[in-house]
């Protein structure tokens, strides 16, 4: 008897800890602003976005000519992109009670404005913005900046 797709997915999830499929699991945040051509690549499939929606780890956002977008992650990190940009939401963990914190995004090309949130405040060393030629380490609030300097 062949397993149906959802049964195989459920087994993979239960025994291997794999996500059920791209874009499921817990959302990491949501789009809040979008203008002009904006695209979402999820599970290898690109589609045009016309209204705000929830975002998941692994999502790639792209803006075309004249396009822009703004998103908020669940730790209140704010990220916005100008035209001709491509951003990958590589990693996000926000479970302070369990000590699981992390944020890694990759700006492949384009322009971005980034306002750090609680993950940077609680665990600055776990926040990184990567580009093809450099890595930006983001230091959070005054309190955590002092802890870093010690």
């Amino acid at each position: 008897m062949r397993l149906r797709e959802w049964q195989a997915g459920l087994l993979a999830f239960l025994f291997l800890g794999l996500p059920l499929s791209g874009g499921e699991g817990e959302a990491v945040g949501s789009l809040r602003t979008l203008q002009g051509p904006v695209f979402l690549v999820r599970g290898g499939v690109e589609r045009t976005l016309t209204r705000p929606e929830r975002l998941f780890e692994g999502d790639v956002l792209r803006t075309g000519a004249g396009g822009s977008l703004g998103l908020l992650l669940k730790d209140d990190t704010s990220i916005s992109l100008g035209p001709g940009s491509r951003l990958s939401l590589d990693h996000f963990r926000f479970a302070p009670a369990q000590g699981r914190l992390g944020l890694v995004v990759r700006l492949v090309h384009g322009t971005m404005a980034f306002v750090s949130g609680l993950v940077a405040k609680l665990s600055p060393e776990s926040v990184r913005v990567e580009t093809p030629v450099a890595t930006v380490g983001v230091r959070g609030t005054t309190f955590l900046v002092k802890a870093e300097e010690q």
């Binding site: 090309h109 384009g110 322009t111 971005m112 306002v115 750090s116 609680l118 913005v129 609030t141």
Partner: peptide, 21 residues
């Protein structure tokens, strides 16, 4: 909380005329 946060503005400029990223 945003008031406590760090604002960072970051960009990559991949110039067509420039061979290197």
């Amino acid at each position: 909380r945003v008031g406590e946060s760090l604002v960072v503005l970051l960009a990559i400029i991949l110039m067509a005329a420039c061979a290197k990223p």
